[in-house]
Design a protein around this nucleic acid. Structure first.
Length: 277
DNA sequence: AAACATTCCTGCACGC
DNA sequence: TGCGTGCAGGAATGTT
């Protein structure tokens, strides 16, 4: 579900609903996520105010009082929903509502993650930037240093597929499987092309389209593929705008040629054989 | 019933 | 030979 646009959409929703509240208590129903939650998580965060909600790549950063930050990653199937009377995204899910934060206004934040590939990790603010999660990340797609020249250099001498490189979080942070296919479609470059064979002009197009496509998706509240819902229970509207992802056999929106599927770096990928060289 | 929106780790091949 | 790097593959897991 969650690539950068979905996490950013979540961040914005929580910025307007949860910031300023205090976590009065927390319940951990299932601590076995990708890594086990610390046994004292609930005690650690109880009583802390939610000061700010940030984001880095696909990580949500909940800044709490006392210089504590909660790093939250939604993995493949996670969601964090804001629930209160009259504003409830769905019924209680006893199997996958793993963690619940009770807020001082009576609302709750619920972390739900069926596959449990996600992460919730408290860390001191001073250690955040050097944490194993954030340390190796490349620039944000919206950062000025992620430009044509940067991407061009990053591709030189690389034999890996351009799509794999675009999804490499060390190169640029936040691009996942859905948006990589969409970006490369708009750039006219096949996902299977070796990165080292991308021209300077193509690298420039990809570098420009990466933030453009992500920004468009953020504006649409992200993409719903299968079951994703945002923090208010709404599906992401960008799903209707996908041009190639999960559209094998359907007509290319530009030239009507049938969209093809290919496996690149063990991930499903989609492209137009005519528009993408 | 095969596929899957993410990340992390292992091991092999290659080059210096 | 030994080491570092790049890359492929697999694993974690439950749902559709």
């Amino acid at each position: 579900m969650p690539e950068l646009p979905e996490v950013e959409s979540l961040r914005r929703i929580l910025a307007g609903s949860a910031v300023g509240r205090t976590i009065v208590a927390a319940t951990v129903r299932e601590p076995r996520l990708r890594r086990a939650l610390p046994g004292d998580l609930a005690a650690t965060i109880a009583g802390r105010a939610i000061l700010e909600i940030g984001r880095r790549a696909k990580y949500l950063l909940i800044e709490l009082g006392g210089d504590l930050v909660l790093i939250v990653h939604l993995g493949m199937s996670g969601s964090l929903t804001y629930r209160r009377d009259g504003f409830d995204p769905g019924p209680f899910d006893p199997r996958h509502d793993h963690v619940e934060f009770m807020l001082d206004d009576g609302a709750r934040l619920v972390y739900n993650d069926p596959r449990r590939f996600g992460l919730i990790k408290p860390i001191g603010r001073a250690a955040l930037a050097d944490s194993p999660e954030l340390r190796g990340l490349g620039p944000e797609p919206f950062a000025p240093e992620f430009d044509a020249e940067y991407l061009w250099r990053a591709t030189r001498g690389r034999r890996t597929a351009i799509k794999t490189l675009l999804m490499d979080q060390r190169i640029v942070a936040g691009v996942g499987n859905i948006y990589a296919s969409e970006i490369l479609f708009r750039a006219g470059v096949r996902p299977t092309r070796r990165a080292g064979r991308v021209s300077r002009a193509e690298a420039a197009r990809i570098a420009a389209l990466t933030p453009a496509v992500l920004a468009e998706a953020i504006g649409d509240g992200g993409t719903t593929f299968r079951s994703y819902r945002d923090s208010r229970g709404q599906p992401g509207r960008f799903a209707e705008r996908l041009r190639v992802y999960d559209r094998e056999g359907r007509p290319c929106p530009v030239c009507a040629t049938a969209i093809r599927a290919a496996t690149v770096g063990q991930r499903s990928s989609f492209y137009c054989p005519r528009c993408q060289k």
